[in-house]
Nucleic acid binder design. Structure first.
Length: 423
RNA sequence: GAGCCCAUAGCUCAGUAGGUUAGAGCGCCAGGUUGUGGCCCUGGAGGCCGUGGGUUCAAAUCCCAUUGGGCUCCCCA
């Protein structure tokens, strides 16, 4: 490439027309499912106050400590949102949605930004869809969220997945567990990896997440959070599992599942696919009963999930699951000569008004080249116009799939088109 | 932040004991069919071999640097 050209930033891609059809398909499927579940779409700005993200997600998380795209203008600090739960929670508080009565059901689809090194299934601008159910601590709310997520994958046909769940407890349970973990790891502190040693004080639960070889033997026998849940958390978790089973949603309990963001409490879950390579999480979520208070609202329990669109596509690609059909064209008007072109420019509108897609050549190609173009664009029909057709007012109506054609007045062609496309 | 791999035509890639005008398939354009697509045949366009420097009589090929890309660790969607 010449050095005089430009290209997208590292980890950011263009989505061209042949790909955008897949996005439309998925987005439509997600929106339709949201309608069935009666979740309302929320669209929040891409830029959020840096402080919201930092407080909401947690200063010590990787996202906040090193992955934010942020800048300031004057006194104001902006950040490109790295995820959408904190922004949705912000909107909930800002617009007093708690005054609307009942729990709020919100979903979103949109781009998120994290300044990481890109690799397969991980980009700096990526897309998530997700949902939040805000204003209830009932276990059935957790199940409603998980059902919604699973239903989308079910509709797509991506069923080769594993739903892992866990409970990370409330602050009381977590404090007990934290002590237990520190007591457990303390004697072996010197044998742990550097990273785990750093986490020992800050957040010992994250040690369980370690993939370092040397940590594995210690992690294997570490105490489990589920043994330290208090009465309330334990009951909540049991209910969630029971309702999931009743709903026919298979899951695997993973007592070592911890989520990367600080705001999670109680239920945590992750949807895994083995067809994704090293970034195997399709999506994840959980309960975050402390977030809204943390960002300035009244204490409000909530639960939600977020899934990666690109990872979803990678998994479908790997499994040969089609995402919509290739876009096709209904009619291509092939014309020869200026008179024919003028005719086409008028009639093309008539055809489009029938709700059919119609195009023509704009670069003066030969008839042969125009038909080739029509074929390439997968056009169902072609109308061929030249001097003789104009003279007789009968136009060549060609069925591209069957290679048949007949000479008809324009009105009759419109009639045939309407019946062919069942308009 | 660390490691590994890669860079030749629009795309996928050949081309290293350094040696004339750098190749294929696909795609694109045109002709075979003076107004008819897909299949077939023929022809054509299109490359400063990522960029800069070095070694050499000679560099796509060897060396150094640089830029861009991919994958992996960390972590996550």
């Amino acid at each position: 490439m010449s050095q005089n050209t430009f290209q997208t930033h590292h980890g950011m891609v263009d989505i061209l027309p042949e790909e955008s059809g897949k996005w439309h398909y998925l987005e439509a499927l997600i929106r339709e499912t949201a309608r069935e579940f009666h979740f309302g779409e929320i669209r929040t700005p891409v830029l959020e106050p840096t402080e919201l993200i930092a407080r909401g997600i947690g200063q010590l998380t990787d996202i906040v400590s090193k992955e934010m795209f942020s800048f300031s203008r004057g006194e104001t600090n902006y950040v490109l949102r790295p995820e959408c739960t904190a922004p949705v929670a912000r909107a909930y508080v800002q617009h007093h949605l708690d005054q609307k009565g009942g729990a709020q059901k919100l979903f979103y689809i949109g781009p998120m930004f994290r300044a990481e090194r890109p690799q397969k299934g991980r980009q700096r601008q990526f897309h998530q869809f997700g949902a939040e159910l805000i204003g209830t601590d009932a276990p059935i709310a957790d199940v409603e969220i998980i059902r919604f997520m699973m239903r989308i994958y079910e509709k797509i046909g991506l069923t080769k997945t594993t739903l892992m769940i866990n409970s990370v407890g409330d602050p009381e349970s977590r404090a007990d567990y934290r002590n237990a973990l520190q007591e457990y790891f303390r004697p072996n502190l010197n044998n742990l990896s550097d990273i785990s040693r750093q986490r020992f004080e800050a957040n010992p639960m994250r040690i369980l997440d370690s993939k370092e070889e040397e940590d594995q033997p210690f992690i294997e026998n570490a105490p489990l959070i589920t043994d330290y849940l208090n009465e309330a958390c334990s009951r909540h978790y049991a209910h969630v599992k029971q309702y999931l089973t009743d709903s026919g949603i298979p899951f695997v309990e993973n007592p070592r599942l911890v989520r990367g963001l600080d705001y999670y409490t109680q239920t945590a879950f992750e949807l895994i696919s083995s067809d994704l390579g090293s970034q195997d999480a399709l999506g994840g979520g959980g309960r975050y009963d402390l977030l809204i208070e943390e960002i300035g609202g009244r204490p409000t329990p909530a639960v939600g999930f977020a899934c990666g669109m690109e990872r979803l596509m990678i998994a479908c690609e790997a499994l040969g699951i089609p995402l919509g059909e290739a876009p096709s064209l209904d009619v291509y008007i092939v014309c020869r000569g200026e008179g024919a072109q003028r005719w086409a420019m008028d009639r093309i509108t008539d055809i489009r008004k029938q709700g059919l897609s119609c195009t023509m050549d704009f670069s003066g190609k030969s008839i042969k080249a125009q038909l080739k173009d029509a074929n390439r664009q997968n056009s169902r029909f072609a109308i061929i116009v030249g001097d003789s057709e104009l003279e007789q007012q009968k136009f060549t109506f060609r069925n591209m799939q069957e290679s048949t054609e007949e000479a008809l007045p324009f009105d009759e062609i419109v009639g045939k088109l309407n019946s062919a496309f069942d308009k």
